[in-house]
Every structure is written in structure tokens, then in C-alpha cells.
Write a protein that binds this DNA or RNA. Structure first.
Lengths: 151, 151
DNA sequence: ATGATAACTTAGCCTAGGCTTAGTTTCGGA
DNA sequence: TCCGAAACTAAGCCTAGGCTAAGTTATCAT
């Protein structure tokens, strides 16, 4: 049995470094995922995703949206038709699909462990980018068990 | 009853924007927390926290550590005595204390919902910065119940 | 059909957080 | 004691992601 006190020695340095590297990697993709997810939502709910709406919903200036969308375009995730909104490339759609699924899963999980839906939604925004596949699998398992046990 | 399909309409734009703002705020403090937490760990476990060890454990160059530590110093979290390592100011210690508590809580929670300890540790690194107070409270509640039920 | 308004872009600036390469300092062992 | 290796700093560069202010350009309503 492990000690309960926070006295476990530090992990080996390279191990430790790998965690932070994963972390930085996740940070780099987080913005792309947020934009792509939001574009997909807007396309679905409003029929179009205009830069001005993205700016409004992200709480950011239009200039920032222009710059970010430029990077997304460079990375093959988004296409633009000025004054006709933004569109997702196939790989953008793919990213949006998995991002949304992840988001939904995290929200449902947070609610299941006792968070109110509004806070769950807010927190999911931050947490969804940092949960590993293993963690997501554990969340899904937890939800499945919860549903079985509940009936 | 709400629809189960992901068809809930988008939240109001300002609402939506506020979530992302919180998010960006958390991102800004994440690096500081990671450094301060690691410095505290090194001081506790090794007796000193040298820049070179931070670099090794963060997986980053020494120059990057110098720059980051400069910002931490500017922000009143850290003090340096060259060749004698890094030290935390009272407010740095405070930050380390709460960061560590949060980290421990998230790890224990992740293990409780079925993650293996190693992955829990890795994921906690990313998740701890993005869980709200409400979420942390929910995690703690969950663990408490779990312990009651378990006996 | 044209002109005001709204949408979008450009330019220029900033900070955080990375990097490498090239110095400085300090410490410790011969 | 002194000198080489290790620790640290400095300089200069880069990208992402923010900002404002100043253009452009489409669209739509008259």
C-alpha cells in the first residue's frame, strides 16, 4: 500500500518532463479545437459561421479571429468565403466531430459526479482538451456503470 | 425533459464568451502554478531547487527557465540566489500549497473513477488548472461519499 | 443604383513561452 | 591555488494569440 501522505518521491526527471511536454502539446491544439467546434456548432445551429459571430462568442476581436482563422486555414482545417462565412474541410469536420463528442462526454461525466449543468458546461470547456484517451475511456465506463446501477 | 441529442441551442454569446475568458485566464496562471509547485516539491524532496533541475524536469532549456523565473520574480512569487537555487516568497508558498492540494485531489479523484495511478498523475497535470472551485468541491464530495460507502 | 453600415483585413504593437548560441560566474577537485 | 566543468545569464530569434486603429469591400435598404 502506498503512503497517503504526499510524500511520494519525485518521478524520474525524463518522466516528469514527458508529462509537461504532453501538456504543452495539448495547449497547442486547444485553440484550434475550440474554433473548429464553435464553427461546427454555428453551422449546425445557425446555418452559417461568420467571423463576426466567432469573435462575439469567443470574446475576442475580429482581428484576432482573422489571424486565428488564417492559421486554421494554413493547417487545412477551415476554408473561408469572405462575407459568406467559414466552412470546415473534411479534416476540420473530423476534428469538430471528435471534439464535440469529447465535450459531451466530459459534460455528462461532470454532471454525473455532482456538478450542476451550467458549471459542468463551463468547466468542460477547459477540461476537454487535457483529458487523455484513457481518462475519457474511464469517464465513459463510469457513466455506463452509473446507468446500469441506476435502473 | 431535455433532448438527449446534442441539439441544445447555443448559449447567449456573452455567456459563451465568458467561458472562454475564464479559460484564457486559467491558461495564464497555469505555468506559474506548475513552476511554483515544482519548486516546492524540489525544496521539500531534495532540499534545494536549482534552475538546472527545473529545466530538466520541465523538459525545457535553462534559458527558458531563466526567463520564466524572471516573470515569477517580477510577480512576487519567487526569489533567487544564483548558484544557491530558487526560493518561494510567502505568496509563492501559498500558491504552491493550494496547487499541490488541488493536484492531490484531482489525482485521487481520477483514480477513484477508474484511472490507473500513472495516467491519473499525468492527466492531473493538465486538468488541475482548469477545474473550477465548484468542480473541485464536487470531486471532494464524491471521494468522501466513496469512502463512506466503501466501509 | 448608390451609399451607409456592417463585415472583413491589414498593419503595427504587445506578452508569454519556447529555442540556440555565446558569454559569465562559481564551485570543487587535482 | 587554480582551472575546467557545470550553472547560470544574455542576446537574438520564433510562434501563438491577444489588442487597437485604420483601411477595404459587400450587402441591403432606400
Amino acid at each position: 500500500m502506498q503512503r497517503t501522505m504526499a510524500k511520494r518521491p519525485l518521478p524520474p526527471a525524463d518522466h516528469h518532463a514527458a508529462r509537461f511536454a504532453r501538456q504543452r502539446e495539448a495547449d497547442r491544439t486547444a485553440t484550434a479545437e475550440d474554433y473548429v467546434e464553435l464553427i461546427a456548432d454555428l453551422l449546425r445551429e445557425e446555418g452559417e459561421a461568420r467571423a463576426v459571430d466567432l469573435a462575439r462568442r469567443m470574446g475576442v476581436s475580429q482581428a484576432t479571429v482573422t489571424a486565428t482563422v488564417g492559421r486554421l486555414q494554413r493547417d487545412g482545417l477551415v476554408e473561408t468565403k469572405p462575407y459568406r462565412g467559414l466552412f470546415l474541410t473534411p479534416s476540420g469536420q473530423e476534428m469538430a466531430r471528435t471534439a464535440k463528442a469529447r465535450h459531451e462526454l466530459v459534460v455528462r461525466f461532470l454532471i454525473a459526479v455532482g456538478l450542476d449543468p451550467e458549471t459542468a458546461e463551463t468547466d468542460a470547456e477547459g477540461l476537454e482538451h487535457h483529458a487523455s484517451e484513457k481518462a475519457l475511456a474511464a469517464f465513459a465506463r463510469f457513466l455506463a456503470e452509473r446507468e446500469d446501477g441506476g435502473r
